[in-house]
Amino acid sequence: MRPVLPGDVSAAARALLAVPASARGGLARRLVLQADAADRYRRRLGKAHPFWGNGTLMAAALGRGAARDEPRLDDPDYAECFIAVLNALLDRRQPV
């Protein structure tokens, strides 16, 4: 996956808002995996993945329709989504 910037986390958190709370953790992990796979695809073939984008977390999230305006960080639902994305990123870095 390409380097993660604050906008990537925001886009992924907004994508998570569109699904039920019980599905958010799984979707966050899936978005991270898709961004990883898209980055490998981009490096190997020299073009963006048709569904998951250019290897950024933002591209993977925007492919799921994360177009709504960014909520405030004190919005409880959005804060939970933001945390889920950060946890998925931290889990990715942990050795298995």
Results as ranks from 00 to 15, higher is better:
1 M>K: 09
2 R>I: 01
3 P>C: 11
3 P>F: 06
3 P>D: 09
3 P>T: 13
4 V>A: 09
5 L>A: 13
5 L>C: 02
5 L>G: 01
5 L>M: 07
6 P>K: 08
6 P>C: 02
6 P>W: 12
6 P>Q: 10
8 D>R: 03
9 V>S: 01
11 A>Y: 05
12 A>R: 05
12 A>Q: 03
13 A>G: 11
13 A>W: 00
14 R>L: 05
15 A>Y: 04
15 A>M: 04
16 L>E: 05
16 L>Q: 05
17 L>I: 07
17 L>R: 07
17 L>K: 06
21 A>G: 12
21 A>L: 13
22 S>M: 08
23 A>K: 12
24 R>G: 10
24 R>D: 07
26 G>P: 00
27 L>G: 01
28 A>H: 06
28 A>S: 06
28 A>G: 05
29 R>D: 13
29 R>H: 11
30 R>K: 12
31 L>T: 01
33 L>Y: 02
34 Q>Y: 14
34 Q>F: 12
35 A>K: 03
36 D>S: 11
36 D>V: 13
36 D>N: 12
36 D>R: 14
37 A>G: 07
37 A>M: 08
37 A>F: 15
38 A>Y: 02
39 D>Q: 10
40 R>L: 07
40 R>W: 08
40 R>I: 01
42 R>S: 06
42 R>Y: 04
42 R>Q: 08
44 R>D: 01
44 R>S: 07
45 L>H: 15
45 L>D: 03
45 L>Y: 15
46 G>E: 00
47 K>V: 10
47 K>A: 07
50 P>L: 06
51 F>Y: 09
52 W>C: 06
52 W>K: 00
54 N>K: 04
55 G>D: 01
55 G>T: 02
57 L>T: 05
57 L>W: 09
57 L>G: 00
58 M>N: 12
58 M>K: 10
59 A>W: 08
61 A>Y: 05
61 A>K: 04
62 L>G: 00
64 R>Q: 13
64 R>P: 00
66 A>N: 03
67 A>P: 00
67 A>N: 12
68 R>N: 02
70 E>C: 09
73 L>I: 11
74 D>H: 10
77 D>A: 15
77 D>T: 03
79 A>F: 12
79 A>E: 04
79 A>H: 14
81 C>V: 10
81 C>S: 15
81 C>F: 05
82 F>A: 03
83 I>K: 08
85 V>K: 03
87 N>Y: 11
87 N>W: 12
88 A>N: 04
90 L>M: 06
90 L>H: 14
90 L>K: 08
91 D>P: 01
91 D>F: 11
91 D>M: 15
92 R>S: 13
93 R>D: 02
94 Q>S: 10
95 P>L: 05
96 V>D: 11
